[in-house]
Amino acid sequence: MKIKEEKYSGLFKWIAYISVALTTLLCLLPFLLIVSASLTRNEALVREGYRLWPQEFSLEGYRMIFKFPERVLHAYGVTGLTTVVGTLLGLFFITMAGYVLQRKDFRYRNVFAFLIYFTTLFGGGLVPWYILFTKYLKLTDTYAVLIFPGLMTPFLIILMKNFIRSAVPEEVNESAKIDGAGDFRIYSRIVLPLSLPGIATVGLFLALGYWNDWLLSSLFINDTDMYQLQYYLYNVINTVSFMASMGGNGVSLGGSIPTESMKMAMAIIATGPILLLYPFVQRYFVKGLTIGAVKG
């Protein structure tokens, strides 16, 4: 590849590096502000505002959240479990659905696609949904209720369908059929390996959904040992704010309640581990990976 510098490629490179660097910086600054605030004494935060460097260092925000460390770890565990199980199950169903819906020889694919899409337009609201899950399906305080509603979304199914269609040429499908491969075999042996970037993307979104969820705990979980992380953290913060706004619980608390720095600490704690997921997903965004697989 030792050919002469291509026309405009230098210019393009400059544009790319500068604009990406600027965007990155813009995304990073507020985050650093939050990190700094989470390490600042609450009083200084209220009095002097937020700084990029803590004016008075303190861990009180974190200490308040980790008051009962075993509970935080437990909540991490619940969220970790639901995220892993939910993402794997969801991926399995979504890829199958996506595969079926993009098959040109599947006569009713548009009808089904519409039925799936339709649910994003109309919904019955919270109340009937809640009644169904608690009264009829009796899912209160189960892991099932933390996993089931997040398994799929119409958006991810249609997205998957699109990814598969562009990654798997029609001919591959046909030639496999001629060779006598069944539909499920084509799906598992050919379609899945070819669609890795799409699977990685959809998997990432599924995992993010589970990781950020707190509503399901809020609605269906009474058992404090089954709270998801985000819900646990919200509760700590809300309880503390409530106590701060109503004036203690009849006991002199001795010391201020770090309402502000705690919120910031929570943002950090909630973000932490899931960030590690992204580099893992990135591995599948390397060009050429898919094409190589088709040829091979």
């Binding site: 994003t120 919904g123 609201g125 958006f155 959904g209 809300n238």
Partner: peptide
């Protein structure tokens, strides 16, 4: 685009951020 049935039901039942409610 993560929408469940529950988020479809207008603001009153929307996922109202909890922190605001308690201050």
């Amino acid at each position: 685009y993560r929408k469940n049935a529950l988020t479809l039901s207008a603001g009153a039942l929307a996922l109202v951020t909890v922190l605001s409610a308690c201050g």
